[in-house]
């Protein structure tokens, strides 16, 4: 395999880093299944709800005071674009669930505006997912899911719910918005799990 070294010592990113059927873009296309919700930070609230109905909530001030990570990750949209090396700031799901008592195996992410998506809990733990509120060093723009969005870079980007409002922990799996409309329940880009039939 050819390795091209850039001046900064990093390996040049090439097609080998693309999941099957994806192309690379340097833009950040805006995909949206509905109008962009506008959420006043004074009214914004994020909740984790367990299978027994127990709620943990954070105001914006509380949320942004939590220990944050600054992941740089590749993202892959099911509409076939991938974007390398995106930089975020957010709170890991591990941190959000640290004090939550649950036997759940599944999660439904709920968004302001009504969008939902489902993910197995283990796909969100061990540093695999964040609730992100900055992109490229700036507050996350509303069209990209601000104030805060889920960031699960190892799955197709429809799983990274914009305008995140709550993570609902469940004992059973509950397919979300696209998962009930022909898209794959799991959405792993490296296995090209785009559609129900794949």
């Amino acid at each position: 395999m050819a390795v091209i070294t850039r001046g900064f010592g990093g390996r040049r990113r090439d097609d080998a880093d693309l999941p099957p059927g994806q192309y690379r873009t340097d833009d950040f296309p805006v995909l949206s299944a509905g109008p962009t919700p506008r959420i006043d930070l004074d009214e914004w609230e994020f909740a984790v709800v367990t299978e027994t109905g127990e709620r943990s909530t954070w105001s914006w001030a509380e949320f942004t005071a939590l220990p944050a990570d600054e992941p740089t990750v590749d993202i892959h949209c099911v509409t076939r674009w991938s974007k390398f090396g995106t930089s975020w700031r957010g709170v890991s799901v591990d941190t959000l669930l640290a004090d939550v008592d649950t036997a759940a195996e599944y999660v439904v992410a709920h968004s302001y505006g009504g969008y939902t998506t489902n993910i197995p809990l283990e796909g969100l733990l061990d540093g695999q997912a964040w609730v992100a509120y900055e992109f490229d060093g700036e507050p996350l723009a509303p069209v990209h899911g601000g104030p805060a969005r889920l960031l699960v870079p190892h799955l197709y980007f429809w799983k990274s719910a914009k305008w995140l409002r709550a993570l609902e922990l469940r004992l059973d799996d509950e397919p979300g918005f696209w998962e009930t409309a022909g898209y794959h329940n799991d959405g792993d880009p490296w296995r090209e799990q785009r559609y129900l039939e794949d």
Binding site: L31, S32, G34, Y195, E197
Partner: peptide, 29 residues
């Protein structure tokens, strides 16, 4: 809303989704 993984038709009155059309590999849902 057509800049999405599928076409999402919403009611102009209440913004609820009234129809979704998704082109899969060999079928249209």
């Amino acid at each position: 809303f057509d800049r999405a993984p599928g076409l999402v038709a919403r009611c102009p009155g209440c913004e609820d989704v009234v129809m979704r059309v998704v082109r899969m590999t060999g079928r249209v849902l």
